[in-house]
Design a binder for these strands. Structure first.
Lengths: 204, 204
DNA sequence: AAAAACTTACCTAATACAAGGTAGGTAAGT
DNA sequence: ACTTACCTACCTTGTATTAGGTAAGTTTTT
């Protein structure tokens, strides 16, 4: 009745299981209430332990946040690059697939959306993280856009840099409205509409 | 030395002045830290009074938030409708002007951006407010888009509803990147690029 | 027109109660 | 014998809100 919370044999396994559960709970909590709004106690409880129990694994709330972000970012960034490479010469299709996938994980989308806006304040713990993230991700896209323009897939009358910013803007903006009214906003559909406008034929 | 904080003659004037100062300070504080992150004490201090002094005018923090939102919304909504009517038959130009104006008031932009994402949680005090706001504002734009399409100003191969969502998405998404790196992102310029794609000529 | 009664704007002080983090212990695993 | 995972208390700080008072402005009464 006391040690049923994480019944694993080895310590390494228990640690890993606990950390995973904590991160999972933290994602939910941060997504629902943001960094400042989320309570460590709730996260701990949802992960099946107490507040100090949680703090044994992550020394502070801020550390937990950063771990959560790094963890998700690693996964997402890889997915993005993979998707881009998979549909290599079809950049726009890759983008649509990405948005489609996002429709599967509203919690994560909300997490990043909320934390991005929160982190605009320079004193937010994730401030630098997100600036770097945007620059890095935009950089990847710019590379891909250059290639797509050379291959004649995308209209060439707009600079790759501008296109990258615009594509991210559309993604982010659609996410906001979609999160508010999920069944009313067809995020992937609308994104595709936009992407079609970027195809080479419709350029001058 | 004691009564220099709001030196007005009549009570009505003092009240109005205090409320104005409070709302102004609240806008700044909410913009910087969001609703949950902003502290009543700071807002009160910035307005030149104490915490209970503030609460004399607004019964609670939540009430204050809602007043702030209503106040700003009234002004912004009117500006939007005015701009739309002024450049009546040039909807896209009106939009660009709106974005240009937003570049003038980063604090307000950040306020709304942060509160929108925060308020996606159904238990947020401004949840309903923002859902209604989006629906209302989109409604206005849909009307205007219908007219612009009939006038041949905008391409007609996309439904007015979809266009409205997309335009708001671009605005919101550009705002996010602009708020993060104000001197790197040319919000109005990029918005214009997008609007040009919506013009009638570039449709099929 | 002056005084009395009341209302309003605000203050100081106290309350309530989260919520992050610490101290030090116990029991399981190594 | 030692380290690790975790718990039960405890502490601290921050922050919304209340209690009750004071002084200035406003209305009513005389």
């Amino acid at each position: 009745m006391k040690q049923s919370q994480t019944p694993r044999r080895t310590q390494a396994e228990r640690t890993r299981a606990s950390r995973e559960k904590i991160i999972h709970s933290a994602i939910e909590a941060f997504a629902r209430n943001g960094f400042r709004g989320a309570k460590l106690a709730d996260i701990a409880k949802a992960a099946g332990l107490t507040e100090p129990g949680l703090l044994h694994h992550f020394p502070s709330k801020t550390h937990l946040l950063m771990e959560v972000l790094k963890e998700r970012d690693r996964i997402d960034s890889e997915r993005m690059r993979a998707t881009l490479q998979k549909n290599g010469n079809q950049l726009l299709e890759a983008g649509i697939e990405l948005v489609k996938h996002n429709q599967t994980v509203p919690g994560l989308v909300q997490l990043f959306n909320l934390l991005v806006t929160e982190s605009i304040s320079p004193d937010h713990p994730a401030h630098e993280f997100f600036i770097e993230r945007y620059q890095r991700e935009r950089g990847h896209w710019i590379q891909a856009i250059v290639q797509a323009q050379q291959a004649g897939e995308i209209r060439s009358d707009i600079s790759p840099e501008a296109l990258a910013v615009l594509i991210f803007a559309i993604m982010d903006g659609l996410q906001m409205q979609w999160l508010m009214e999920p069944e009313k906003i067809d995020m992937a559909g609308l994104f595709r509409v936009m992407m079609n406008m970027l195809k080479a034929e419709s350029g001058r």
